[in-house]
Amino acid sequence: MAALDFYFDYRSPYAYLAQTQVRNLGVEVAWLPFEILQLMDQVGNVPTSITCKPKGKYLGMDLQRWVAMYGVPFQRNPQGADIDARRLLRATLAADELGQADAAVSAIFGSYWGGSGAPLVTPADLVAVLNGAGVSGPNLLSRIEAPALDAALDAATTAAAARGVFGAPTMYVGDEMFFGNDRFDFIRASLGVAA
């Protein structure tokens, strides 16, 4: 059993930032993708950073503060509007079936937010990114596009909502929930990990 459950959608820049820090904890992480807009609909949440212009403007500045603090690359993929987010999430589920979720999450976040800018628009683009990170398996491309994996993503989203997840990133240590990129002091304390 993983020490920390990490719930995320690749569209969240704060999830990108948080996953860079989770990797520094030295604990086993369960990567748990979910479809954020579907989940928000299920739990009655709304993406206020999109609907509230002053909040959206503030978050743009806030993200830059976190990027500077963490010293990580940050640049949204220039094709971001054309990327099928569900495909990215299904790819993570497929990689998890192969025992390669950690490498997939790192590679996809790196392409989406981490400045590599590697194309993610087509299924072949995504498989190239995964292969470049060492993620491979039989029929990976067809598996990512399989209706059964799309259904599995819906089920994962519903399970996340049932657990109490309302946005990304959300992390659990046992039954203790932590929401957001700024909860690592509490997470370290809960894990008993030194800063």
Results as ranks from 00 to 15, higher is better:
Gln75Gly: 08
Ala91Lys: 01
Asp182Thr: 08
Pro138Ser: 14
Phe178Ala: 09
Val27Phe: 11
Tyr172Asp: 05
Leu4Ile: 13
Trp31Tyr: 12
Thr92Val: 07
Leu4Ala: 06
Val67Glu: 04
Ala133Glu: 09
Glu97Met: 12
Ala195Met: 10
Ser111Glu: 08
Ala2Lys: 05
Asn45Glu: 14
Gln42Gly: 06
Asp96Ala: 13
Pro147Asp: 08
Ser190Asn: 08
Leu17Cys: 00
Leu153Ser: 07
Val72Cys: 00
Val165Arg: 02
Gly164Pro: 01
Ala2Gln: 08
Asp150Lys: 15
Ala159Phe: 06
Ala148Phe: 12
Phe186Arg: 11
Tyr7Glu: 08
Glu176Ser: 09
Ala101Val: 02
Phe34Cys: 02
Val43Gly: 06
Ala101Trp: 03
Ala68Glu: 14
Pro138His: 13
Met61Glu: 14
Phe179Arg: 04
Trp31His: 08
Val105His: 01
Gly115Gln: 05
Gly56Pro: 03
Ala81Gln: 15
Ile108Leu: 15
Ile108Gly: 05
Ala2Leu: 08
Phe178Asp: 03
Val72Asp: 00
Asp82Thr: 09
Val67Leu: 10
Leu25Trp: 02
Met177Ser: 01
Pro73Ile: 12
Gly26Ile: 13
Ala85Leu: 15
Val173His: 11
Val135Ile: 11
Tyr172Glu: 01
Asp62Asn: 13
Ala124Glu: 13
Val72Gly: 00
Ala152Pro: 06
Lys55Leu: 10
Thr170Lys: 04
Val46Ser: 13
Phe179Cys: 02
Ser12Tyr: 06
Ala18Arg: 07
Ile144Tyr: 03
Trp31Met: 01
Ala128Leu: 04
Asn24Val: 14
Ala189Asp: 14
Gly110Trp: 06
Leu4His: 07
Tyr7Pro: 05
Val129Tyr: 01
Leu17His: 00
Glu28Leu: 14
Asn45Pro: 04
Ala124Ser: 13
Asp182Asn: 05
Leu98Val: 09
Gln100Lys: 13
Glu28Arg: 14
Ala148Ser: 15
Phe6Glu: 02
Ala15Met: 06
Pro123Phe: 04
Tyr14Val: 09
Met40Phe: 07
Ala194Phe: 12
Ala15Asn: 07
Arg188Asp: 02
Val46Glu: 13
Ile108Ala: 06
Tyr58Trp: 14
Leu17Tyr: 01
Asp185Lys: 06
Ala128Cys: 02
Ala194Lys: 15
Asp125Asn: 03
Ala151Pro: 03
Met61Gly: 13
Asp175Val: 08
Asp5Ser: 06
Arg90Tyr: 08
Gly164Ala: 03
Ala94Leu: 03
Leu32Arg: 13
Asp9Met: 02
Asn77Ile: 00
Tyr10Val: 07
Ala104Met: 08
Thr158Pro: 00
Leu98Gln: 10
Met61Gln: 14
Tyr16Lys: 01
Met177Ile: 11
Arg65Asp: 07
Pro119Ser: 15
Asn131Thr: 12
Leu120Asp: 00
Asp5Gln: 10
Gln64Val: 13
Ile144Cys: 09
Ile36Asp: 05
Ala152Phe: 12
Pro33Val: 01
Ala133Trp: 07
Ser111Met: 07
Pro169Tyr: 10
Gln42Leu: 15
Tyr10Lys: 01
Phe179Met: 09
Val121Cys: 00
Asp175Cys: 07
Ala30Glu: 07
Lys53Asn: 06
Val29Asn: 04
Pro138Ile: 12
Gly71Ser: 00
Tyr10Glu: 02
Gly132His: 07
Gly164Asn: 03
Ala128Tyr: 00
Gly114Arg: 04
Thr158Asp: 06
Met69Ser: 14
Tyr7Asp: 03
